[in-house]
Computed example of a mutant assay.
Amino acid sequence: MTGKVSRKLATGLLAAVVAAGGITAVSATTATSAEPPATLAGEPTDPNIRFTGRWDTSDPGAYTPYWAGAYLSVGFTGTTVTLQQRDTIDLYASVDGGPMVLFDDVSGEVNVTPEPLAAGEHTLVVSYRVVAGSYTGDAVFQGLSLDEGAETYPMPEREHLIEFVGDSITVGTTTSANHLTAYPWLIGEQLGAEHTAIAQGGACLVAADCVGLEQQFAKLNPNAPEPDWDFSRYQADAVVINLGTNDIGHDVSGEQFQAAYTNLLRTVRASYPDAWIFAMRTFRERYVAETQAAVDTVIGEGDDRVSFVDTTGWLGESDLSDAVHPNDQGHRTITEHLAPIIAERL
């Protein structure tokens, strides 16, 4: 990396407005022995770099997001910026608020500014394709490289954070750019809020023989029983739950579902005491009465910041890519309906 200073990253946010359809493909000093080594700008521990969502930061040289919708953001000076990736991954990067550009099957040093920028201050937002199902990319961020003498600086924080909980619909499966063209990302950007998703394709509410979010909601990794997620790392202002589409295929009874949904609502409330919780009617009309009953139960227990979202009639045939998953248009349709409901409470 001749002529460059190695740089890596540290804690969560965003600042690029991503337009749907705007996606293009592109196939220090040494510390003394008495002092801890200084953090270099661009290292994963650089406090100017923010990580939104659930990132595994246990390895200070390699940060990993396990859930959909996580991203990093940072300001930087100079004319170029290069990501340091461990192994092959699909990633999206936006420079200076421009469209998210797809870098497909990249690894090692990934130059996200192939055309050098004008000297000055710039911004960068990076999101990885969610690693799940048949996709086995390596979403491990190991840092940034900038021009010699360049610096990082923090992006301005957004006032609110919205967390979306769900399955492949929430992930954005079958859309043109996966999560970047799904309603959680679109709503967050439209409302100018930070946003992340605790979602995985095929997820259920009840842990039958699938990922059960009644339990995994509180975990760092959807596919591991430990460790628990540290909810002190961020607090959501709104939580949107869209679960129940997959449970019916795992022989979950209505009684089981209602009890699990009630328990999840209690867990979300304990995790985010001040958040407004939205429980969505599934678009496939599954466990609707049970979802409504779970909401009524916690309201009856004194929780006055939770509501049932009736999605009846939101999606038509032209909004779907198959019998289950919304297409790009469908996710925009969901955004049109759901964003004002969330905005009213925020």
Rank of each mutant, 00 (worst) to 15 (best):
I341T: 12
V165P: 13
G143W: 14
V112D: 00
T82R: 14
T32Q: 03
E214D: 11
T88E: 11
Q215A: 05
L124Q: 06
V130N: 13
A279D: 14
Q329Y: 00
N263P: 05
W185I: 06
D322M: 00
A10E: 03
V206W: 04
R284Q: 11
G120K: 08
P116E: 05
T45V: 11
R286M: 03
L265N: 12
E159S: 11
T174C: 01
D310P: 09
H179G: 06
E336A: 14
D46N: 11
A289D: 15
R284T: 13
F51M: 14
L13P: 13
Q142M: 15
V95M: 05
T79N: 05
T311I: 07
V17E: 09
N242L: 09
A41I: 09
G254V: 04
V165D: 12
Q235G: 13
A15K: 08
Y272Q: 15
R86K: 10
D228A: 15
E115Y: 00
P273L: 04
D230Q: 09
Y287G: 07
T113V: 13
S307K: 09
C204V: 05
G61P: 05
G166E: 00
R7N: 12
A275R: 02
A238Q: 12
E344W: 02
L346T: 11
F231S: 14
G212E: 03
S73R: 02
V131Y: 01
I162W: 04
E148R: 10
A62I: 03
D328A: 11
D274Y: 02
T152R: 00
A279F: 10
V130A: 09
V101R: 11
V81E: 02
V252F: 04
F278K: 10
Q190I: 02
H179S: 13
P222H: 08
T174Y: 04
Q235T: 15
G120H: 01
N48G: 07
Q256I: 07
